[in-house]
């Protein structure tokens, strides 16, 4: 079983390998063909619109929209759970949908509440 499933995935690995095979030679070829002039250190500075960079490029930087991120962490998983139910919907009994609807209801309520609160608190 495991081997069978594994063999199903092997073409994806092939494709990955082919992507690498397409990428590496072109980079190597580009490296061979292109000019390399290193006399000017300013050329290799990070982009700062023509100015000398101020501060670090990688910094502690926070966007305001973290409430969405927190909700995403929860609801993305739930959305994937729905697939497990959805794929077997036709083979399970009809009553099994009721708890699912209840689950969706809770999910919706929670999401609505979260959106409402974060909207009210002005997190973004």
């Amino acid at each position: 079983m495991v081997g069978e499933l594994g063999s199903q995935f092997t073409p994806i690995l092939y494709a990955l390998g082919i992507g690498v095979l397409a990428g590496v030679p072109s980079l190597v070829l580009s490296r061979l063909l292109s000019p390399r002039k290193r006399y000017n250190p300013v050329k290799f500075l990070p982009m700062e619109c023509g100015q000398v960079p101020v501060g670090e490029g990688r910094s502690h930087f926070m966007m305001q929209y973290y409430a969405y991120i927190l909700m995403f962490v929860v609801f993305d998983v739930i959305a994937i759970f729905l697939y497990a139910w959805g794929s077997s919907l036709l083979s399970i009994s009809r009553e099994a949908t009721l708890p699912m609807i209840a689950f969706l209801g809770i999910m919706f309520a929670a999401m609505g509440y979260a959106l409402y609160l974060s909207g009210r608190k002005g997190i973004w």
Partner: peptide
């Protein structure tokens, strides 16, 4: 320390021959 200084211009597609330094706190 949590602000990021960005210079917009002179070599910025959104500035023209002009520079203004902005500091952003997240998206503001």
């Amino acid at each position: 320390d949590r602000l990021m200084t960005l210079s917009v211009g002179p070599q910025h597609p959104g500035s023209g021959h002009f520079r203004f330094t902005i500091k952003v706190d997240g998206d503001y």
